[in-house]
Nucleic acid binder design. Structure first.
Length: 774
DNA sequence: CGCCTGACTTAGTATTTAATGA
DNA sequence: TCATTAAATACTAAGTCAGGCG
């Protein structure tokens, strides 16, 4: 409980997503500075290729990708140059950061009520850090030689795994190791394939069957992800259904009949009318531009001003429709449900290596208007409808290939077992590829997940050494090394993301560690009674604000001053560093180490420590769960996982309070009754009255328990107002820690993980004992 | 070697479903 | 039994990172 817990307060207190900073950055203004600038040159070169329309792009088929990219790229660069020019002229460009959705508000109060949450950092990082972690990993194994082709093998965690697990693990190691066995395996697999297929059929009929424990089987070592893959392809978005002519769109006050294509796009906008998106300039501009591309030339001529477009009737129509859907009779609802179920059964599963596996997203994303997060330059653009001709299918050669809808064909069918996706297509907003992949409960995802935690556990063994080294590097005479070491310190201490550079004008302006700019930190030699305080304030992933005041070591502070010398606010803080340099360095420190492993490691180790610290043996189960949630919360705060407070938050708190009050009254009454029963028993001294007393006692107890439960719930909810636990639970916390905790304290696992989560973490639930240690 | 891109993980929010209570 | 509210799930954007290519 020392030191910097106050900063966590502030971090949360002010967290918010900033949407409309009209900030203007031109980070590459003064060239000389850095070596990140050749980009520029390239861009300029490329922009020569620039050309006009990019409508036809969408239509084009082959070698399309190249082309799209190039054209887009060209446009992009033009834009960029233009902006730059603008910038030169008007020099205001100061960042305007504002809290938009009033994220935090009363957080401080609620959080400070609970010191556990805010104090975790002291616990997490005792000052003499170097010593605080085990450090028994040979640093100097030559990466070149020792690194096997297959990395991430948990060679020797056996010493970390007591008894039973150790056995399991040995098995695991043995199984996974031998490459020679590779020849044998396929045969073996192939053999039981038939049997298994039959099995699969059975399974489909009568659900039960014991679950497949893939974690007890060996993994492929040749980089292949599967041997057999069969699926039914994607489910396409339903075709557009034109509006009835009764529902009218108006232009300039007069009804206007839109062509089908234009109407469809109009409905996208109409459906969002209540959303504040539609009031934003960029959104409107992008929408209108793309909408016009869908119009007939006649429409184009007439509809020239979005402000004269009246979508309100369409909007009301859709609202009424969704209302009607809610009011549907039970039978109708059931019918829809059954239809969905049928679709799920048909398309929601695939057959991968003899096992029926659930697909995560078997539906193709329907067309609509792009909703970027934060201040996204492309918000409002039309996300076009995906057709079979856009789709690449991936499956086994010898499988039954999915059929394209009648009269259409796939763009391509390939058989690449080095990847895990079943279907892919190129999306038109960023030109990136989208995939259909398997559910987190699948073997292919589970293995990877498990592996991720094993890598983090390997980091645990050598983190001491790595920390010692980066501290040493703060003194390096080489700038790049100093920058690298300070960045790594932030990544480790603050769980920052790596921070890849992003293309300006393509996405919202967000940063991570390596891409921090001078304007994102403020140095104070002394602040609030602490020395060498760094104040972070930037937008991270999803434009979630990261705000934190952290005291750092003097050397770090001095280095930061050095890095900031002679720089403009919009210049990179770490001008000699990027994620690829950093990760290459990390790779040398430990096989499989990358920046994000630190997040996983610090998250999991924090959970483990917090659980140890917060759990009180004699507490009842609800209180234990509160402790768990608090430990989880500590991690969420560390990782800056925020959420918008639920719209009905205040009300639901009130409701809960009402319940609590009612329960208190009830308790009061029950106690009074108990008293009188006791008095009664004293007088009467018969069995019956004694029993009555007992009964009353029980009632009081029960009510007390209920009250307690409610109060705990209230605390939990209040503390959780704008903190999202889900992300860390799902992605950062080694599930075995939670499972072990549950076993140790006899908390039913269902209290911690819901059904989906239990499916995802089946491997952990099965293999973790009550003495697992991360 | 830097850049680009493909593949995959991580992320918050919108929508749907289930649970609760009037 | 219906309406609310909470929890679960669906959705898809936005990151990370490695490998290939010019």
């Amino acid at each position: 409980m020392s030191g910097d817990h106050a900063h966590n307060d502030s971090q949360i207190e002010s967290g918010s997503r900033v949407n409309d900073s009209h900030k203007h950055k031109d980070k590459h203004k003064d060239k000389e500075y850095r070596h990140k600038d050749h980009k520029k040159e390239k861009e300029r070169e490329k922009s020569k290729y620039s050309n006009s329309e990019h409508k036809d792009l969408l239509e084009k088929k082959h070698r399309d990708k190249e082309k799209v990219r190039q054209k887009d790229g060209a446009d992009r660069h033009k834009d960029k140059e233009k902006r730059k020019e603008e910038k030169m002229r008007s020099f205001d460009g100061k960042p305007k950061k504002e809290k938009e959705n009033g994220f935090a508000r009363s957080l401080l109060s609620s959080l400070s009520k609970c010191c556990h949450v805010v104090c975790f950092r002291g616990v997490l990082r005792p000052v003499p850090r170097v010593k605080s972690e085990p450090d028994n990993d040979g640093f100097y194994h030559s990466p070149k030689h020792e690194r096997s082709l297959k990395r991430e093998r948990d060679d020797d965690d056996s010493e970390f795994m007591p008894k039973k697990i150790k056995i399991e693990n040995d098995k695991k190691v043995k199984k996974r190791k031998p490459e020679e066995e590779e020849d044998i395996k396929p045969k073996k697999k192939r053999k039981d394939k038939k049997g298994d297929v039959a099995d699969g059929k059975k399974k489909a009929k009568k659900e039960p069957e014991e679950k497949w424990k893939w974690w007890e089987e060996e993994r492929a070592t040749d980089g292949s992800k599967w041997r057999f893959l069969e699926h039914k392809g994607p489910v396409f978005a339903p075709p557009y259904e034109p509006l009835s002519s009764k529902v009218k769109f108006y232009y300039d006050g007069k009804p206007f009949k839109l062509s089908e294509k234009a109407e469809e796009v109009a409905t996208f906008f109409a459906k969002m009318l209540d959303h504040e998106y539609t009031t934003k300039d960029i959104f409107r501009k992008n929408f209108f531009k793309d909408w016009r591309k869908e119009m007939t030339s006649e429409e184009k001529g007439k509809l020239t001003d979005l402000n004269k477009c009246d979508f309100s009737e369409l909007n009301e129509y859709f609202k009424a429709q969704s209302e009607a859907r809610k009011q549907m009779s039970k039978e109708e609802k059931l019918k829809i449900k059954e239809e969905n179920e049928r679709l799920l059964q048909e398309y929601g599963f695939c057959l991968m290596d003899n096992h029926k596996e659930r697909i995560a997203n078997f539906r193709i994303e329907p067309p609509g208007l792009f909703r970027g997060r934060g201040d996204h330059p492309k918000m409002g653009m039309l996300k076009r409808r995906i057709r079979p001709e856009d789709i690449i299918i991936n499956c086994s050669k010898d499988s039954k290939h999915p059929k394209p809808p009648p009269g259409t064909k796939w763009k391509e069918v390939r058989h690449d077992n080095k990847v895990t996706w079943l279907v892919s297509w190129t999306e038109n907003i960023q030109g990136s590829i989208k995939y259909i992949m398997l559910n987190p409960s699948s073997r292919i995802k589970g293995e990877k997940d498990w592996q991720k935690y094993e890598t983090a556990r390997r980091l645990k063994k050598c983190v001491g050494r790595i920390r010692a080294q980066y501290r040493e590097d703060w003194k390096s005479k080489e700038m790049r090394i100093r920058q690298r070491s300070v960045a790594l310190y932030f990544i480790d201490k603050l769980a920052l993301r790596a921070g890849n550079e992003k293309e300006e004008g393509e996405t919202a302006d967000t940063v991570g560690c390596c891409s921090l700019r001078v304007e994102h930190i403020k140095l104070s030699p002394e602040k609030d009674g602490q020395e060498f305080v760094v104040e972070f304030d930037f937008l991270g992933k999803d434009s979630i604000r990261y705000y934190n005041k952290v005291p750092v070591e003097k050397r770090v502070f001095k280095n930061l001053q050095l890095f900031m010398e002679n720089k403009q606010p919009e210049d990179d803080l770490f001008d000699r560093l990027n994620t690829s340099i950093l990760n290459k360095h990390l790779q040398e420190l430990m096989d499989g180490l990358t920046a994000k492993v630190f997040r996983t490691y610090n998250a999991s180790i924090t959970l483990q420590q917090q659980l140890k610290e917060l759990t009180t043996p004699e507490e009842n189960i609800p209180a234990k769960i509160l402790s768990y949630n608090r430990a989880n919360r500590a991690v969420a705060i560390l990782c800056n996982h925020q959420r918008a407070p639920p719209k009905t938050f205040e009300k639901s708190m009130q409701n809960l309070q009402t319940k609590i009050d009612a329960k208190k009254d009830q308790l009061f009454d029950a106690k009074r009754e108990l008293k009188s029963a006791k008095a009664d028993a004293k007088v009467r001294r018969d069995e019956k009255s004694k029993k009555a007393v007992e009964a009353k006692k029980k009632a009081v107890q029960r009510i007390e328990e209920q009250l307690m439960k409610l109060e705990v719930q209230a605390t939990d909810r209040e503390e959780n107002k704008q903190i999202a636990l889900g992300t860390s639970k799902l992605n950062y916390l080694d599930p075995r820690i939670s499972v072990t905790w549950c076993k140790k304290w006899s908390v039913p696992i269902e209290k911690i993980y819901n059904k989906t989560q239990r499916e995802k973490f089946a491997w952990a639930i099965d293999m973790a004992d009550d003495d697992y240690e991360f």
